[in-house]
Amino acid sequence: MPTVVDMTRAEVEQWRSGLLAQTRLSYEELSARAELYQLSADEMDIWSTIQGLDYLLADDE
């Protein structure tokens, strides 16, 4: 069963920033490495989460 998380927009943005910081890469670098299939398993999990958060944040505008 999926997990439901109730957060404010600011909390989601902070979570996203924290995930990106864990990779020590910029968004552009992470995206480029993902396109070239050069991410570790942990980085891929983070990338998938960031993509999902971006989708939700875009829908909120």
Results as ranks from 00 to 15, higher is better:
T49L: 09
V5R: 14
E11M: 13
W47H: 00
Q22G: 13
W15I: 02
Q51I: 08
E11I: 00
D59K: 14
R33T: 02
I50H: 03
L39H: 01
R33Q: 00
Q14R: 13
L36A: 12
S17L: 06
Q38L: 15
D6Y: 05
L30I: 05
L36P: 14
D54L: 08
R16V: 05
R33E: 04
Q38W: 02
D6N: 13
Y55C: 01
Y27H: 06
Q14W: 07
V4S: 07
D59F: 06
L19P: 13
I46D: 02
S26F: 02
D59E: 10
T3S: 07
L20H: 03
E35Y: 14
E43P: 03
E28V: 01
G18P: 07
R9Q: 14
M44K: 07
L30V: 12
L53M: 11
T49D: 02
V12N: 13
D60S: 14
I50K: 00
V5G: 10
D60K: 12
L53A: 08
V4R: 13
E43I: 00
Q51D: 00
D6Q: 14
Y37K: 12
T49P: 06
D45F: 05
A10I: 06
P2C: 09
D6A: 15
A41E: 13
E28C: 03
L36Q: 15
S17V: 03
W15Y: 15
L56S: 15
L20C: 10
L39A: 12
S40Y: 03
E61C: 11
M7Y: 15
L39R: 01
R16W: 09
I46Y: 02
E61P: 15
A34R: 01
Y37P: 05
L53C: 01
Q22E: 14
D45M: 01
V12R: 11
T3E: 09
S48K: 14
D42W: 07
E43H: 13
S26G: 11
Y27F: 06
D59I: 01
L36I: 06
S31T: 09
L39K: 06
P2G: 13
E11H: 11
Q38N: 02
G18D: 09
T23I: 03
E29T: 05
A58W: 10
V5C: 13
W15L: 10
Y55S: 12
D6R: 14
P2E: 14
R24V: 13
L36Y: 12
S31K: 02
W47D: 00
G18Y: 05
E11K: 10
L19C: 08
W47R: 01
L25G: 10
E61R: 15
Y37V: 08
T23F: 00
D54T: 14
L25A: 07
E35P: 12
T23G: 15
